[in-house]
Amino acid sequence: MLTIGEFAQLTHLSVRTLRRYHDAGLLEPARVDQASGYRYYSAEQIPAAQVIHRLRELDVPLPDVQRILQTPDPGTRAGLVADHLQRLEDQLERTRAAVTSLQRLLRPEPATLDVELRAVPATTVAAVEATVELDDVLAWYSGAMAELDALVGTPGPPGGLYDNELFTTGRGRVLVHRPVTAPPRTGRVHPVTLPAVELAVTTHVGDHDTIDVTYGELGSWVVEHTLAVAGPVRETYLVGPRDDPDPTAWRTEIGWPVFRLAPG
């Protein structure tokens, strides 16, 4: 039998860590002396300790480590590990996006934003709309677009209208739509006539993790050019994940409703 100190030396796990694993039921000693409370381990426990160590290096939570160790089927264990690795990759992508946003925000001289003032006529579209929580927008959008695609196909780039309250209070009206000559009225899908509007339009390049930076730059442009905001922001998804799996190819038009202020 190995003392806890000897076992710690062999596995490169601290005594404190081994005690915590014992308390969590992850790696119980082979024997605990009832009189002294000393923990003793066997050499056969070294591989299990090393597996736990590697899982913890990957930030697998202790309950998930326990679930992996207690799963007898190798395929199931591999699936649990793969799920966690996917979560790590997603987190890494979010971190990279945050770094990109910071680099863009901290540039001493930001690039000039390409903005177009565009008069958009009234347009009838097939739409799905609802009042949505900000945290639920992506899931709601996916369901709404799937319903639109099933009924009207993909005649043109989809779009969305987002009320200011969605961003200011975390809950607001959202409308997604597709252009179509004769919009159907089935389920949640119904015809909507979008009113004529003048927009300050710019194009966001890439995925939506950094779209808030483009929103901020467009908002600054609107203020600097003495234009007042009026109405919900419009987005048009020229190229998105439905069109190209490469996020660098995605293009989203942001249309900020505006009107010119009178001189003075």
Rank of each mutant, 00 (worst) to 15 (best):
G159Q: 00
T76Y: 04
R251Q: 11
T203W: 14
P245G: 05
D135P: 03
D23L: 01
L134V: 12
V60W: 09
E116V: 14
A228I: 00
G216Y: 12
T203P: 08
E165V: 14
R173T: 08
L26K: 00
V197D: 10
L194S: 01
P158S: 06
P47T: 05
I52D: 02
P184F: 03
E224K: 01
R54H: 09
V32D: 02
Q66G: 15
R260N: 01
L13C: 15
L88T: 06
L88G: 02
A200E: 08
V115W: 00
L218Q: 13
V15A: 06
H190Y: 10
L238I: 10
V201L: 03
E253Y: 11
Q70P: 01
A126L: 05
R16G: 00
G264V: 06
L261C: 02
E224M: 01
P195I: 07
R178W: 05
R16A: 03
G264I: 06
Q86P: 08
L18N: 07
G143W: 07
A230M: 05
Y141N: 12
N164H: 15
N164P: 02
T169Q: 09
R20H: 15
P232G: 08
H12R: 09
P29N: 09
T3H: 03
M145V: 15
V99H: 12
T112D: 05
T202C: 12
A146M: 13
R96K: 06
D90A: 11
V137A: 06
R242T: 05
R54V: 04
A127K: 06
D243A: 01
V233C: 03
E133G: 15
L88Q: 10
Y141L: 14
P158T: 05
T252I: 10
Q91D: 12
P247F: 08
P110L: 03
T112N: 05
A150D: 13
V174L: 08
Y21W: 11
D136N: 14
G216A: 14
V65H: 13
P61Y: 07
Q103V: 12
T252R: 08
L18I: 11
D90R: 14
E133A: 15
L80H: 11
L105Q: 04
D209Q: 11
P195A: 01
L227F: 13
A78M: 09
V137M: 10
L134K: 10
G143N: 01
R54A: 07
P195T: 04
Q86D: 15
E235P: 01
Y215E: 00
R77G: 04
V115L: 02
H12F: 08
R171M: 05
I68Y: 10
F7R: 07
I52C: 07
L166K: 10
T95E: 11
V32L: 06
